[in-house]
Amino acid sequence: MPRGNDKEYSVQQMIIEKRLKKKNHFNFEKLIPGLLLLTAVLSVLTTIGIVFTLIFETFIFFDRVSIIEFLTNKKWYPFSATNASFGIMPLVVGTLKITGIAAIVAVPIGLATAIYLSEYASEKARRVIKPILEVLAGIPTIVYGFFALTFVTPILKQMIPSLETFNALSPGIVVGIMITPMVASLSEDAMSSVPRSIREGAFALGATKLETTIKVILPAAVSGITASVVLALSRAIGETMIVSVAGGSTPNASFDVTSSIQTMTAYIVQVSTGDAGYQTTIYYSIYAVGMTLFLFTLFMNLFAQFITRKFKEEY
């Protein structure tokens, strides 16, 4: 049948006309890649700028305080007028305590939640619980901070009388609560993306739900789960408000969780909001601490990427 002969119009004809019109007009389409590139370059440049400032100011700090002292000295007394000492260790230990406690809270609860949501929950339960998790993830951290100080700490104090008002335990637990939704939601994504057919294969062999989950689904989703844990922990490392509010400001290198601590982030806040003079050693020290923090999270993120790539599921 010849096209367009028995009707008043031909689609091809119309398309050709439109295209001709377009060609004569100024072509916006051609500009798009350029514009997009510009924004991409802008964000890359900003990042490079930040990192460069960080490195630059850190170098000035190491001009005044030796890097050996920074890494090996076990005391962080930047404000001491007579013998200030800048050993990063206490701040790192403070951060690690928070991160460790947070992991102990977030990994089991987050994983259990993910398993429940992906393997056991009915469609209805999932529809209720997932949004709640997302709301939990959206609560401002300052709110979590006061929750730790005014609610969790008093409860813990009743159980552990020797607990100080500012301590590592309470903010650690609350940071754990804060990152649990992230672990749960990302792990749930990883587990639900294991195809249904693989579950059926296990069920058809007489496996129970638990056997299928533990021995087939979890191993299949292991890279996604690990990545979610690592990402969540790198958030815990960078967490600032909760530890500033409830953790105190006493840098100490002991692994005791009941006494007051200071994390790297909390120190930066303390100096930034205080009255350390511009270009003093204390001023430059926040860049060195910031640099350390940056290296920690950078390493964690690279590790997460490595895991995801290395154990890429192929189904």
Binding site: V194, P195, S197, I198, E200, G201, A202, F203, A204, L205, G206, V216, P219, A220, E313, E314, Y315
Partner: peptide, 17 residues
Amino acid sequence: DLRTQVGMVFQKPNPFP
């Protein structure tokens, strides 16, 4: 118990990863 006695092969191969 039933599925231990009665195995199944599916339309699309579904080995475990």
